[in-house]
């Protein structure tokens, strides 16, 4: 029984390591084409449009509600210490350092990542990836790479917009609704947000954009070529993508503090 348990742990560990190696191999092979193959501007632009611009609305809504909730909740807590004037900086730092990149990435996974996996998975099922291969077009260069690049480029931009919308929404709730002094709110925000905080947020956004692109393309590319296989791959992409983002977030946060 115990031996069996250890055996299972060992087996799944090995499987995970093998998978990690496969992800690394596949993504680095795709990225190697970034320099090599002829410039495919049109494919990049189309993917940024589908994945980045297409995710703007949901990111904006998430940003607005995040800022509003933070202001409301932060006010409740800070008021207990009589430090309502710190509200501006509390909201700004939470959004810029943590919530902007993390929630932005999670929303991107839900909105764009899952569709990347499903799309590539269906291309696998219907033989379109093989067809590209037979027409001497490398699917890694043509399908996988532009999608990784698109999430890598789009997420930092989306996170910046998330931040701004969140800050504005926090200001509206904090100043107009809860009556925090406008000057104190803005002054605290500007005084407490340091360049390091902005860099931390953007570095996270770039890292998460890369992770989302790599994991979601990988899951689709390696999907089992059946209908259930694609469904399973899409779920796995969302789960693995979200967990990776949160885990890497912890590592990066401990790095930046």
């Amino acid at each position: 029984m115990i031996v069996n348990l250890f055996g299972r742990i060992g087996r799944s560990t090995l499987q995970m390591i093998a998978k990690l190696g496969d992800v690394t191999l596949l993504s680095s092979r795709s990225l190697a084409f970034a320099g090599k193959s002829p410039w495919q501007g049109e494919h990049y632009v189309r993917q940024i449009y589908a994945l980045g611009v297409g995710s703007f609305v949901i990111i904006a809504i998430t940003g607005a509600f995040t800022g509003m909730v933070l202001a409301l909740q932060g006010y409740y807590t800070l008021a207990k210490f009589g430090s309502e004037s710190l509200l501006g900086s509390a909201v700004a730092l939470s959004i810029i350092r943590e919530l902007g990149p993390v929630l932005g990435a999670l929303m991107l996974i839900g909105r764009a990542g899952s569709s990347i996996t499903a799309e590539i998975g269906i291309m696998r099922v219907t033989g379109q990836l093989d067809a590209l291969e037979m027409m001497a077009v490398n699917p890694l260069a043509r399908i996988v790479l532009p999608r990784i690049m698109a999430t890598l480029i789009a997420l930092p931009l989306l996170v910046t917009l998330f931040d701004l919308i969140g800050l504005a929404a926090g200001y509206v709730v904090g100043v107009d609704l809860l009556g925090v002094n406008a000057g104190a709110y803005v002054g605290e925000t500007v005084a407490k947000v340091l360049p390091e905080d902005l860099y931390a947020g953007w570095v996270k956004a770039i890292a998460f954009g890369f992770i989302v692109g790599v994991i979601c393309t990988y899951m689709g590319y390696r999907a089992e070529p059946t209908t259930e296989g694609v469904a399973k791959a899409t779920t796995q992409a969302v789960v693995a993508g979200s967990i990776s983002v949160l885990a890497v977030d912890y590592i990066l946060t401990s790095f930046f503090l």
Partner: peptide, 16 residues
């Protein structure tokens, strides 16, 4: 060499 090969797949595999 693939330039000298063509393939018609079972489900046609047109790029949709």
């Amino acid at each position: 060499l693939r330039g000298k090969m063509g393939m018609v797949f079972q489900y046609s595999a047109l790029l949709n």
